[in-house]
Amino acid sequence: MTTSPTRAGAGHAPATAPSGPQPPGRGSASVRTVSLGLCGIVLFLLAWELLPRTPAADPQYLPPASTVLATLAERAATAQFWGAVGDTVLAWGSGLAIAAVAATVLGLVVGSVPLLRAYTASTVEFLRPIPSVALIPLAILLYGTDIRSTLLLVVYAAFWQIYVQVLHGVADVDPVAEETARSYRLGRLARIRYLVWPTALPYLLTGLRLGAAVALILTITAQLVIGSPGLGQEIAVAQSSGAPDVVYALIVATGVLGVLVNTGVRAVERRALHWHPSVRGEVSA
């Protein structure tokens, strides 16, 4: 994945937008985007509601949306559900954090030393495509059903996403900016802090967004397959007790978690990258 740090421009106003009169149509355009999005969700739920009532689907294995949402509401009132959500968020969050810190530090160091980068490139290209799920047996051997099993998978999967982005970011430092920094006698640390870090930040955040999604997938997978506590394990339990509506409700819950994670990272991106062309939008000259 070599996704560049450009985001398809949502209709949000950049943090530094001048407070003058808004160009006509811009505010209403973003309102329209949101309302179109809501329309889509309503249509989807409607289809889901109606499909089980037709002969095309068996309501036992595809309960209508209303049933699933009611089950979800019911579940959401239990401590067990929130305990599972907490376990999932904990495994996901700490795994992502470990991966992010390790990938950022290593990426900055390796990216700044061309020789090191050349030496490690082929190894990285070998290790990176290994699917994290292939490590499940190893994780079980090492840590059993402990949270550390989940962490191993999550960290491995998220690390590469972020690491590769940081490497790209470090390589993207503008030569003129680099010469400027050197001509003003900025030392190595100052150059990393004031030049390399801000240049790599958009890449890092893109990596973080990709890594966050992968980390959530691996968290749920580990809980499903290994049986460490969390939403994934709850889904497995619901499945074995023959409660499809609970399975669906929990799947919806993981989906909501994914949306929240993505929204969160995007909010961080908008704040941290208010100066970046992808965020500052029409303000630029």
Partner: peptide, 22 residues
């Protein structure tokens, strides 16, 4: 042998020489 302390350089490519995040 290295950029001297009492010298400053103004480059042609101002857009790339200035840091957009500052």
């Amino acid at each position: 042998h290295e950029p001297p302390p009492d010298m400053a350089v103004v480059f042609q490519e101002y857009g790339r020489s200035l840091f957009p995040w500052l």
